[in-house]
């Protein structure tokens, strides 16, 4: 089993599950549809990567939290809308850099086209909210301060951070947000060490399959 496929699949799966929590709860109808569409793209990517790593259903539904290898960034609770948007920006730009570095890989080439739309969507909202009202700016800055430490884990075992910063930093600056200093860098996701939030997410995602193994619509 390819560890890289498992990492990419787990990241996309957990990110998709979090985004899907916005369905019917987004601030406006268009945004509800947009977040659901992005979640669906990520779910599709997860299925492709996990199918290449092994049996997608077994991997998605029958592993415990200690067996999941996603970065902690994607499992954190959604927080407010600004928090969700900022995480989407960080994760989508990471995926864009990652898939560009994998050019020639059939899954990466397919996913790269969709991720360009995700990055653009997160960028537009980051600018609008960061450079918006006092309230929206304050919330975005708080989200940025909370999420920034968790971005370091994305770059364990790769050299994508310089490219990532070259995209993210100008967006934050244009959004009048202050990029935090590097400091605390939580780690462990790739080896199965997670925040307590992942267990609750998995409980909801896996309960049907565990209660009715092999059930079909």
């Amino acid at each position: 089993m390819s560890k890289a496929d498992l990492h990419h699949g787990d990241d996309a799966l957990i990110a998709a599950q979090r985004l899907a929590e916005w369905t019917s709860r987004a601030p406006e109808l268009e945004e509800d549809v947009a977040l659901a569409n992005i979640a669906l793209d990520l779910l599709g990517q997860a299925r492709m990567f996990l199918s290449r790593a092994g049996d997608e259903d077994q991997l998605a539904y029958l592993r415990t939290d200690r067996e999941f290898t996603n970065v902690q960034l994607v499992e954190l609770p959604n927080g407010d809308f600004g928090h969700t948007i900022l995480r989407l920006l960080f994760f989508s730009v990471y995926q864009q850099q990652l898939f560009a570095s994998m050019r020639g890989d059939e899954i990466a080439d397919k996913a790269a086209k969709e991720v360009a739309y995700h990055v653009d969507h997160a960028r537009m909202w980051t600018l609008r909210l960061g450079d918006g009202t006092e309230e929206s700016h304050g919330r975005m800055q708080r989200a940025l301060d909370e999420l920034w430490p968790f971005t370091h884990e994305l770059f364990e075992g790769n050299d994508l951070r310089a490219g990532w910063l070259s995209v993210v930093e100008p967006i934050l600056a244009e959004a009048t947000l202050t990029r935090p200093e590097d400091g605390w860098a939580p780690t462990g996701g790739r080896s199965g060490v997670h925040t307590q939030h992942l267990s609750y997410l998995l409980a909801e995602m896996q309960v049907l399959h565990r209660a009715h193994p092999g059930a079909r619509w």
Binding site: E30, E31, V33, A34, N37, I38, L40, D41, Y117, D120, H121
Partner: peptide, 13 residues
């Protein structure tokens, strides 16, 4: 353009 994401993944509104 109202929204880059429409009623299905392949369409915008």
């Amino acid at each position: 353009e109202l929204s880059r994401f429409g009623s299905t993944a392949c369409k915008s509104l």
